[in-house]
């Protein structure tokens, strides 16, 4: 038995549907550069979702989603360049990060590392991995025929081919649609997961891990499960990033990348699935606008946003806006029914 849709869920669906119509119509009237800009925001939104779900619904702070993002991107790059088969490459971009997440997650989660320690250890993982990739600049370091090239990254990746017709490749607009649909599917999958029994247990872990354990569920198994799933989602984002830019580099995994995922989630709000999507939209447009306007260092801006978000609006934008909407709607409803109000007060007298 699944619970009925709540008002919030219905509102989310309506907003997503309206946004989808607008987004699907973009290529009809906007140029390729806007499509490219939006595509990368969708990629980061998928990444933010993989982090925001664990943080908001399960209470796991993974600062290392960029580990899986990076491994996903590099898996696609290396396999696609070696074989030319982009479909399998994209599958690997999901599966390999899941495998790594399972290994890493086993040690962290079964070691009983929780809360902020979890955050710090996952963050250290991304620092370590970035260093390792940066250290591969020696031209002799190859996987198959592909040189890893250290901090220069791997460029000139093949375009994504149509799985059932490998002679055809996807261009900017098709990639735009593909990434957007992937984002919608990931959001839907997380929403369904949340409504399933597993999702209830995960939320229960956030609320009270000990009680869940006493009810006979092993919280560690569920946490590992969601860590692996979210690792796959982050890997998918990494693969799509590689398709988007035909390029992967260690910057995908550095501390700034990892910080911007957290900032996206924090600004949008971690409580809902919409939060990470909206937050990514706001923060990424802001930083790219500031970057093009030449307002100094992006780091300064990100740092200020992060501090302000924690001190001033820790819940994020989405809960704030929805509270305002609810308040406004309440007023509208009351304004629209003056007679009833009058008769009600009249009845009292």
């Amino acid at each position: 038995m699944t619970p009925k849709l709540s008002t919030t869920e219905i509102a989310t669906l309506i907003i997503l549907a309206l946004a989808s119509v607008a987004i699907l119509a973009v290529p009809k009237f906007a140029g390729l550069s806007l499509q490219l800009d939006l595509s990368i925001i969708f990629v980061y939104a998928i990444l933010a979702l993989s982090m925001g779900f664990m943080w908001g619904q399960v209470g796991m702070l993974s600062f290392g989603q960029t580990v899986f993002f990076g491994i996903g991107g590099y898996s696609y790059a290396i396999f696609a360049l070696n074989t030319g088969d982009t479909t399998t490459a994209m599958l690997l971009a999901i599966l390999l990060p899941m495998l790594v997440a399972a290994l890493l997650g086993y040690f962290i989660i079964y070691g009983g590392i929780n809360d902020i320690y979890f955050a710090v250890i996952t963050m250290v993982a991304t620092i370590a991995l970035e260093k390792a990739v940066r250290a591969t600049s020696d031209p002799r370091i190859k996987i198959g025929d592909v040189r890893l090239q250290g901090q220069n990254g791997i460029a000139a990746l093949p375009d994504l081919k149509v799985p059932w017709n490998p002679s055809e490749t996807l261009f900017v607009t098709e990639v735009y649609y593909l990434i957007f649909i992937a984002m919608l599917l990931v959001t839907a999958a997380y929403a369904l997961l949340l409504r399933a029994r597993v999702g209830r247990v995960l939320v229960g872990i956030r609320e009270n891990e000990q009680r869940i354990a006493l009810l006979g569920y092993d919280p560690r198994r569920y946490k590992l499960l969601i860590f692996v799933i979210s690792g796959g989602v982050a890997g998918l984002a990494g693969g799509l990033y590689a398709v988007w830019g035909n390029f992967v580099a260690p910057e995908m995994m550095n501390l700034n990348a990892s910080a911007s995922v957290v900032i996206n989630v924090l600004v949008g709000g971690k409580a809902s699935l919409l939060g990470p999507l909206v937050g990514t939209g706001i923060v990424q447009s802001l930083t790219s606008w500031l970057g093009s306007a030449g307002v100094g260092q992006v780091n300064v801006v990100l740092g200020l946003i992060l501090i302000a978000a924690v001190q001033v609006f820790p819940q994020g934008v989405v809960p704030m806006v929805s509270a305002i909407c609810r308040w406004g709607l309440g007023h509208l409803v009351r304004l629209a029914q003056p007679s009833r109000r009058a008769s009600a007060t009249g009845g009292k007298q």
Binding site: V300, G303, L306
Partner: peptide, 19 residues
């Protein structure tokens, strides 16, 4: 507020690098 401290000091870290 452990998590908030962690996030705020991360912001501080980015701010200091940028400055």
């Amino acid at each position: 507020r452990l998590t908030d401290t962690l996030l705020a000091t991360w912001g501080l870290s980015l701010l200091m690098i940028g400055a």
